[in-house]
């Protein structure tokens, strides 16, 4: 019943590190999600997680001109979005501070994704990978 995955999905978009670009990033996530026939709920989760990762990168850009590259890739029955910024490496944001409400993005990413990875990008920036499993329906019916 699950449609075959398009082979070798590999897409990317590069945007300015600016919160005004978050909507464009979400449209990109939507396009990819439609292409792999993701359900509406998982599509929403990916839009949110990718958007939060981009918002974190924008915050760390501190107003400096910087770009963000968002890549989408299907491999091993997983859809993975990788957000790479061109700034300096910054660690995952702090735990959620209930007083200032800061750092709520990371708990949301972790709650909604099957895997979240923070890594130092080859160029020195920060790379965040967000993955969802695509074979959940198959696994559930097996």
């Amino acid at each position: 019943m699950t449609a075959a995955l398009p082979p070798g999905i590999d897409r990317h978009i590069t945007v300015r590190a600016d919160t005004a670009q978050l909507a464009a990033v979400r449209r990109f996530v939507e396009e990819v999600a439609v292409e792999v026939a993701l359900d509406v709920e998982k599509m929403f989760d990916l839009k949110l997680a990718v958007s939060e990762a981009c918002a974190n990168a924008v915050e760390h850009a501190g107003g400096e001109a910087m770009s963000l590259e968002v890549c989408a890739r299907v491999h091993a029955q997983r859809l993975t979005f990788t957000i790479t910024d061109t700034g300096l490496f910054h660690p995952p944001p702090p735990r959620w501070d209930r007083i200032t409400n800061r750092g709520l993005g990371l708990p949301l990413m972790v709650a909604l994704m099957d895997e979240v990875v923070f890594a130092r990008a080859p160029g020195g920036g920060t790379m965040v990978s967000l993955s969802v499993a695509l074979n959940r329906d198959i696994a559930a019916s097996a």
């Binding site: 978050l22 979400r26 929403f44 839009k47 949110l48 958007s51 939060e52 918002a55 409400n101 800061r102 709520l104 993005g105 949301l108």
Partner: peptide
């Protein structure tokens, strides 16, 4: 149609 942690923070505040 969509809300992220920015919107959630406004509700919490």
């Amino acid at each position: 149609t969509y809300i992220d942690s920015g919107g959630i923070c406004v509700l919490l505040a």
